[in-house]
Nucleic acid binder design. Structure first.
Lengths: 308, 308
DNA sequence: CGTGATTACGTTTATCGTAATTATA
DNA sequence: TATAATTACGATAAACGTAATCACG
């Protein structure tokens, strides 16, 4: 059995059982592909494709199972090449990180700063998008990993690495009545117009779930993807903002006060998501080691390839 | 890149980096293997093996990662062949089931009877052993699956399919004082000499854990792997037996009574264990469908190969 | 020197394209 | 008749073994 034969089979399948089209994609001649497939079928002792007279129509049951296994085999072979090119290159290359604007703005900058200093040859790119987008990008190989606040609805082609916890805080104008209470409740919060993240962010659903399960209907005055924008509206006295604790400036948020709200909304976990079962590139591993040292991803890599 | 090259790499590794030995195993000439490996290294652009002058010594870091991926790729290719031979054969073949004597004797017979009637061409073999042995047999491909009472200490090369629950019953002589109580306690049970399974069976640990966590030290008079043997001793009045509920005869256990003990020892789950990530043979799927129809393994197979 | 890796060389075989053929819509 | 699969044939290349060479213990 040859790798090419497996490639041919897979390509025929996703060319919609059109040998000619598959041959074009594979830079091979139509007869070559035809013969090679026949050879494989002969070797395996059964037909992989259903043929009506002179046309490929579909996979046989055996063909389906075999095409699946073939795809997995090819992925591993591809992975051999990726591993090689990963080791081959020195500390140069590309690293694309997909994440929500919140992480990009608050958690990432210090890490990125250290990273580009340590690995100046790596071209680091950060793509911003909502939860669904960043997942999509990683699956399509348009990004090497995503950083997202879970639990993300995620399929079995991705692996999530829990990095650290995140909790909500409330930003209110300095003289706001909420600031006087010792321990606020969801009910207290609900009394005021609320500014928070857009609905496509996981944090939004997280917050809303807390309100709804308490039987409350908050008055969402305004939603945005940018915490700095929210702060502007808070300063203007339009309402109070519920944001991730990472979004609070270190004493730089003048004109407002921060009220802890961890007990109201619980904690979420920030995850790094990568494609499952493939070799994690050296640059990605280095980055993750900086972003979440407790994962000890580098140490794992040394003993076993492609983390859990 | 050729599959053979990957085979060569893997074989060199488990021949202890001895090219000559690897070549012999692979039915190839030493020079052929040498050149082919060099070709691969050239293609990948980096050395896979550490060479001291004229001798292979070990894998480079890249080599280790690549050897792992290569092994996975080869396993998938092998799996293609297995799938083919699985579909090729009609309803003939072999099926080896490893299990503890208890399952072999009580749960399996009716299933086996139906199975051999439906698939008379399949040579069914049942190997009996303790928990560790049956796991070992499946991993070494000396058996297609095992049936065991969990939770088995199991590694990530195996998949466990939960089949059904099992609970303990107490077998006591007809006139035994325990039979008069309405709801017995662990303490009650401890007052009498106990007959149960050998220590190497999971059920034994399960029972003992219940006693120990209640701070009790039961008097184990006798342990055996065969429930029928235990019954003999119970009839002789030597003690009471704690056995799986599946071991009780349907009214045929003369001279003794059955006392329910589910509330004392809880329930365990009977699992079928198979090698992870490989195609499940048609015969095995058929058997599992009969043994545990609620798994709907056949339906899963039709859509996706090798169940979770 | 013996064992084991590499290089050189030649034969055999397989791979794959062009051209011709057949079959279907 | 156009499109798509199969068969026939031939040139090129690769796969792989034998023999020779080299390198170390």
């Amino acid at each position: 059995m040859k790798l090419q034969q497996l490639r041919y089979v897979c390509e025929i399948v996703n060319a919609g059982f059109n040998l000619s089209r598959a041959a074009r994609v594979l830079h091979a001649s139509q007869p070559g592909v035809s013969r090679y497939v026949h050879l494989l079928e002969e070797e395996l002792g059964l037909p992989l494709f259903v043929r009506t007279k002179n046309r490929l129509v579909s996979l046989t049951p055996a063909g389906e199972a075999i095409a699946e296994a073939a795809k997995r085999a090819l992925r591993e072979v591809e992975s051999v090449q990726h591993i090689a090119s990963d080791f081959r290159g020195g500390d140069v290359g590309n690293l694309i990180i997909a994440t929500a604007p919140g992480h990009a703005r608050y958690s990432l900058p210090p890490v990125v700063e250290r990273y580009v200093k340590r690995y100046p040859g790596v071209r680091l790119r950060i793509r911003q998008g909502n939860s669904a987008q960043v997942v999509e990008w990683v699956m399509n190989k348009e990004a090497d990993c995503f950083i997202a606040t879970g639990p993300t609805e995620v399929n079995r082609d991705l692996t999530l690495l829990p990095c650290h916890d995140i909790h909500a805080v409330i930003l209110a104008p300095s003289a706001h009545p909420l600031g006087k209470k010792r321990r606020i409740t969801l009910h207290d919060v609900c009394a005021f117009p609320i500014i928070t993240y857009n609905a496509e962010f996981t944090f939004y659903s997280h917050i809303m779930r807390a309100f709804h399960s308490a039987g409350l209907q908050p008055d969402i005055l305004l939603s945005a993807s940018d915490a700095e924008l929210m702060k502007t509206y808070v300063r203007a006295g339009l309402g109070i903002a519920i944001v991730a604790h990472t979004a609070q400036g270190k004493g730089k948020d003048r004109g407002m006060r921060t009220i802890d709200a961890a007990h109201l909304f619980g904690t979420s976990v920030v995850h790094i998501g990568v494609r499952r079962g493939v070799h994690l590139g050296k640059h990605l591993v280095h980055f993750v080691e900086m972003f979440a040292p407790r994962l000890e991803l580098g140490a794992q890599q040394r003993t076993k390839s492609a983390g859990a």
